[in-house]
Amino acid sequence: MSEPDILCDVIDNALLHLYLTVAETTRYTPIPKRNEVLLRYLKPLAKDKAYRGARKEIRSFLVLGKTRGCNLESKLIELHELSLRYDKNASDAHQLFDVLGQIEDRLGFPTRFINYLNKGEQPQANTIYMLQEHIENGFVESGEQVAPVSLFLESSTVVSVQAFINESGLFLAELQQMNEGAKQGHIVLHPATKEA
């Protein structure tokens, strides 16, 4: 999980913890008490290895929560709303680079442009190749995808790459061509909101 995802999880879980704790009492819970509840939840996370990517931010929350007159809950709500706005506005181009990064991290397939192969150089197996023109012409300036993007892969796991992309929900991956003998595949990416 990436650092921004870890931080979003911390914020969401901290707010849920606060609201569930406050819901257990019928009395009004003042801001200092709410800060205390949040601090008790966040303190162990600062030492947890699973949250290493957000450790700096968690420590900042701890300092902020101990500051007199500070409302840690409102700060976490602001950050939560900011992350929701970012997710909503994430462009298709950004999502393409996210999914390609996930493929490299989880499946081990790096991505290259076909245009950058040296003359005489053959495409490498287990590497995803893209046409630079598809990126330049497939997205408008705002990052919205307006044309399908092709991915070319020489591997015995082309179908699993297609499934991985579809499971991500970021794009609809269509297997355009598959040469079983040569283990070559052509995957076409469409925006997730449109049918292939």
Rank of each mutant, 00 (worst) to 15 (best):
G65P: 09
E3L: 08
S160L: 07
P30Q: 00
N179T: 04
L189K: 06
S168P: 10
V159R: 15
V161F: 09
E133M: 10
I31E: 10
F97I: 00
D12Q: 13
F139R: 06
R34V: 08
G69Y: 06
C70A: 14
N115L: 01
A163S: 12
G185W: 11
M1A: 10
M130R: 12
I31G: 04
E195R: 09
F171A: 03
A192I: 09
A50G: 10
A173S: 15
Y28P: 00
I58T: 04
A54Q: 03
E136P: 01
M1L: 03
A196W: 12
H190G: 04
V159S: 14
I135A: 09
E133D: 12
I6C: 14
I103W: 10
G120P: 09
I31P: 00
L153T: 04
V158C: 11
Y116Q: 11
F61N: 03
K33D: 13
D92R: 01
Q177S: 11
L153C: 10
Q184Y: 14
D5K: 10
K43P: 05
H190R: 04
F97N: 08
R27G: 04
N126A: 10
T193Y: 13
Y86E: 11
Y19C: 06
L18P: 02
N115G: 02
C70L: 08
L38M: 11
E133T: 12
I11T: 05
D12W: 02
A93I: 02
E154V: 08
T29Q: 07
L39E: 07
L72I: 07
D48C: 03
L82Y: 10
A14K: 05
T29E: 09
K43E: 14
E167Q: 15
L84H: 02
E133K: 09
E195D: 13
N137G: 11
K33G: 03
E121S: 09
E36Q: 11
S150V: 01
E174V: 13
I187V: 13
N89T: 01
Y86G: 03
V99R: 01
L107F: 08
E36A: 11
M178L: 15
A192C: 04
